[in-house]
């Protein structure tokens, strides 16, 4: 069999699966939002997974990059408001780092808005569902990231 490897990017339509989203939620703010959504039994699309972390500071930028390499279409990082973090100013450090990572993602073509870094305290739990829905729609409009780059699970090169 012969395969024509066209060199301009393969126009792959977004496959039917809804975009995969990974949520890093800090236990003291982000998770409370997710819990709030759960308590209200709000129906949500099942295309996201939540990883609880002690503080947004421990979300390694390399882990976010690894997430995209493993086939995620979008990553949300939910931390506490600046000034309200139990770990002094750890959330602002994370914010700056991930802001720089967004610049890199924009540069390389993945797009700055595939990584959403948000800050919200516990009482804003009801916004968890809105954030998730808006983010999913935003990502769904974009082309699927399932390119030949992604590693083992998506497609082995």
């Amino acid at each position: 069999m012969a395969v024509e490897v066209s060199n301009n990017h393969k126009q792959q339509k977004a496959t039917e699966r809804t975009p995969r989203i990974l949520v890093f939620a800090c236990k003291w703010c982000g998770l409370i939002g997710a819990d709030g959504a759960g308590r209200k039994r709000e129906p949500l699309p099942p295309n996201f997974r939540v990883i609880p972390v002690e503080c947004v500071g421990s979300v390694e930028p390399d882990a976010v990059i690894r997430a995209f390499a493993d086939g995620m279409d979008g990553v949300i990082v939910m931390g506490c408001h600046l000034g309200g973090c139990r770990f002094n100013d750890a959330n602002h450090a994370a914010f700056k780092r991930l802001e720089l990572l967004r610049a890199l993602l924009e540069g390389v073509g993945i797009g700055r808005d595939r990584l959403l870094v948000t800050f919200g305290t516990a009482h804003e739990g009801h916004q968890f569902t809105d954030v998730l829905r808006n983010f999913t729609n935003l990502i769904a409009k974009k082309e699927s990231l399932d390119t030949s780059w992604t590693s083992s699970r998506a497609r082995m090169i």
Partner: peptide, 14 residues
């Protein structure tokens, strides 16, 4: 085999 050369080439005859 679809080697790295084939991955970057225009046409790959396997």
């Amino acid at each position: 085999r679809r080697t790295a050369v084939a991955e970057n080439a225009h046409i790959h005859l396997a």
